[in-house]
Design a binder for these strands. Structure first.
Lengths: 211, 211
DNA sequence: CTCATTAAGTAGACATTTTCTACATTGGGC
DNA sequence: GCCCAATGTAGAAAATGTCTACTTAATGAG
């Protein structure tokens, strides 16, 4: 590996280097130039890999979805024939991932990071990640575990809930994200419980369909 | 009103002017200088109202929480003695708010927009907004509407779910955010149903507590 | 009414950053 | 071994964030 010039894997290095900067200084404080200097390349080099700053952010979001997919797959493998545990494990895994990488999660679900180029790569990552989650849900359906709903609706509901909870925790809005693991787990378990069995009291008075 | 100099309400004007820019060009494309020019003031003027760019973004996030609070309060007034409808109305109202103002919602729940100054004003806005939602949940509890959970857990779960769903819709990840109102409502209603009655099939096999 | 205080806006300066463009180096495929 | 596409470099132009030292106007005390 020649010492200088061709870095070897600048693209990946940029993504990795950007993450701590995002955490410490936020999106506004991130600069491609600064990353280049940190990595010992010239200030123009990053543009060989990312059209602009937004494209780098999008690439980071992609890694988040890749992680989500990974978490789902591992959960599935870990409990091959217990889809209930698969979902629980995946959800909890995602929560801890977000707590450890809040800056990545922050980039994942956002209305058009760049409203222009519709991020085909990102859309792809989203699709495969939700696909992995859908598999877990489907497993549960085969075991008659879930009520009769469209799979996509279940994916959507669970992912929304878990992601929202994770962001709340990571943002320190509810509890200190540095709380001991057990405290976070307890909160996750309570929300999981509500999500599984519903908010509503089963013997609630007159059950009118909401308008 | 003197034609020049003292703008009168520059702070508010900046917030309003920033919103469309955020939608069209994203956080990265927003510039205080540009806003100043648009509003016909000098490039330094914004700094009389916001310490920096991040502070402006935070102020926009605050308006989002104010809107959330408003939506909750209106829902409560609209159905004074039907807490079920209160929650449904609030949730659906929030979804449509996010669809109409995705760029604002995007700023609301994020881990430390600026990790430094902990945004007291924002924290305040968060607290009163979640407080309004908590009131609606409390109303339901008085009617024995909800299962026996901590109020904060219910607030958290419902807000997470609704916010997540709204972001998905607004981001165009699932369905076109320009879909007719009825399509969005239908999706919201399905998720609401799942959230209320739970994902799980009530007659599901062996109900082991998740680990 | 006048005047001092202060909030709000201006103008200019400087360091950084984004990006563009033209050029250099290298590794790999033929 | 040579040529080319990919990758990195260097330099410059325009925009931006943000500081500092002024200017103007609104306001309230006397």
């Amino acid at each position: 590996m020649s010492k200088n010039y061709h870095h070897g894997n600048l693209r990946q290095a940029l993504i990795q280097a950007a993450i701590p900067v995002l955490r410490e200084k936020g999106i506004v404080g991130l600069s491609l130039r600064g990353l280049a200097t940190t990595l010992g390349v010239s200030h123009g080099a990053p543009y060989r890999h990312f059209q602009n700053k937004t494209a780098l952010l999008e690439a980071i979001a992609v890694t988040g979805f890749a992680a989500l997919q990974n978490i789902c797959q591992e959960a599935e493998l870990k409990f091959p024939d217990d889809p209930r545990k698969q979902l629980y494990e995946a959800g909890m895994g995602y929560i801890f991932y977000v707590v450890r990488n809040p800056e990545i999660a922050d980039l994942m679900f956002r209305p058009g990071l760049s409203p222009d180029h519709a991020g085909a790569e990102l859309q792809q990552a989203v699709d495969t990640a939700t696909g992995s989650l859908a598999t877990i849900i489907e497993n549960g359906k085969h075991h008659k575990l879930y009520a009769d709903h469209d799979t996509m609706d279940l994916v959507l509901t669970s992912l929304s809930t878990v992601h929202g909870l994770a962001m709340f925790i990571a943002g320190g809005i509810l509890i200190d994200p540095a709380s001991p693991r057990s405290r976070i787990e307890a909160l996750g378990a309570r929300v999981y419980d509500i999500l599984m069995h519903g908010m509503e009291n089963p013997d609630a008075p007159h059950h009118a369909q909401p308008p």
